[in-house]
Nucleic acid binder design. Structure first.
Lengths: 124, 124
DNA sequence: ATAACTGTGCTAATTGTAATAGCACAGTTG
DNA sequence: CAACTGTGCTATTACAATTAGCACAGTTAT
């Protein structure tokens, strides 16, 4: 697993882990019933305490994105529709864009960014 | 001044204050040399300790958005180009949109949001 | 059965930072 | 002088993130 953690960020480590696992699920890289690395494995890989990993996994389980079985491991949930995941991410984007507008950003500037990010992509 | 503070938010109060003052400047509601409320006035208005207000103002002064004069008060800086302010807000929007994309959000969804936020506005 | 894994559930200690409180000092204005 | 302004401290409180360590329970393979 390729995780990029910023230990000096204001956003907690467990949130960063949640985000990145959610991204892997939302983008389809991780599919239903795929097994995640074990708590202890991730803990040593990322040099992060097992409790911090556990916190992230527990949250993800509460959100229905993963499920854990004692003795076996943690896996990607079946029912989780990607739409739902993207939805919450879009909500944050909406906030950021609104903030940008309130600070004087022009619509054209925002559109440039969107096009830049999605450039080379296919439309649905 | 109409401030909306979320005391339970993860983003610190002084950051919320910075954001909202920055928004007032970036949107042009506050103009160069306009006087801001005094530290003590804002402190009592918002029911926030003066040190917290001071923290916000000091940060804003470091960013060149306002300037303070002992005995007189705090004022909006002259040189601050709105573009610069919008720029930083746009950078955050870029991050949020990228994150949304990585979580599976479609370009069309993002565009809908942008149009929704800017609906009824004039194009530059 | 045992070893080597898995997740679970605690409690405790540490750390960093936001926020508050209070005081003193200096500049401005009337 | 009085009543404001911002500035600069120090100390304290409060909370959340993180780490540490231990014990317990389920799974799997030898």
């Amino acid at each position: 697993m390729n995780f990029f953690l910023d230990f000096h960020s204001r956003t907690p480590i467990y949130e960063q882990i949640k985000e990145q696992i959610t991204a892997l699920v939302g983008s389809g890289i991780l599919k239903a019933d795929d097994q995640l690395p074990s708590l202890r494995q991730l803990s040593s890989e990322l040099s992060v305490n097992i409790n911090t990993i556990k916190r992230a996994f527990s949250d993800l389980e509460s959100q229905g994105i993963i499920y854990s079985v004692a003795g076996k491991g943690s896996f990607v949930s079946k029912g989780t529709k990607r739409d739902v995941i993207a939805e919450s991410a879009l909500e944050e984007a909406r906030l950021a864009i609104s903030k940008a507008k309130s600070m004087g950003a022009e619509k054209s500037d925002v559109l440039k960014i969107v096009n830049n990010i999605y450039e080379g992509d296919e439309e649905t």
